[in-house]
Design a protein around this nucleic acid. Sequence first.
DNA 1: AATGCTATTGCAAATCATTTGCAATAATAA
DNA 2: TTATTATTGCAAATGATTTGCAATAGCATT
Lengths: 140, 140
Amino acid sequence: MTTGSRKLNGAGKRSTRQRALIMDIIRRGQGHLDADEIFRRAREKEPRLSLSTVYRTLQMMKELDLIDELHFTESHHHYEVKPTREHHHLVCLGCGRVIEFDYPLSSYLKKEVPEAKGFEIEETEISVAGYCARCQRARR
Amino acid sequence: MTTGSRKLNGAGKRSTRQRALIMDIIRRGQGHLDADEIFRRAREKEPRLSLSTVYRTLQMMKELDLIDELHFTESHHHYEVKPTREHHHLVCLGCGRVIEFDYPLSSYLKKEVPEAKGFEIEETEISVAGYCARCQRARR
DNA sequence: AATGCTATTGCAAATCATTTGCAATAATAA
DNA sequence: TTATTATTGCAAATGATTTGCAATAGCATT
């Protein structure tokens, strides 16, 4: 009954050791893990786990709305459990650190941006890249 | 002197037929073309052009700040000439249409989001996915 | 205009992230 | 406990992008 297994069963999916483990890692990882990092951490507990299982699980969790996929500047993606409050991400190009900030973009858009009025918004994502205070110092 | 060749020369780069063509296509494409689409259009004029040249050119234009790379929900990227006003994108999941809207996010962030204060912002990107008015009708 | 230096190109092969086919395995309902 | 079929691991496929290398073409100089 952890890890959304209720939602899994509800959708006619089976709740397996691998899926529980993967969801656990995503939750503990405080968001911002990529598929490969999830895979590496999962392997410590479950050495025979395959990368495809990770990808298949991520895919399914997205569809069940248990996790969000984040698109930073990189070519691969990052994952976090579905957040309660709408928030977005500052990514430091120096050290890779991710800082979250709350920001109710979608309601804002609907009020302020005429082009967004006729639009049925499914997903919003802000990503901001730059240098955190520490890395700014290091760059001088 | 078209197509940023001034900036090219300034950076000790050569201005070639392929580069001019690619930049031209990006400019005419009103933004929102991906590498492969740029390649297909460029081939009509320059049949021996290779895809690597397209990628190498995109890479360089990014570095010279002549173009921006956009990250929609998809796995590949899109490109547009560096815009004058800060704007962002609504992408329709139904028909793929891209609608631009002005929104001065970075100045807003600096004012309103405490976490962003210590940050030196290099790049901001909002992407909003959903269904445009037409596609909403079609889905019922 | 011809020459030489070296950046740039086209092509093929490599790489990275992700997806897929398939036979073996395991979760659930009967 | 058994039968059914979703799920897994593995290997091979795919899609996007990058890289090595020899041939070509800009451009500064003669």
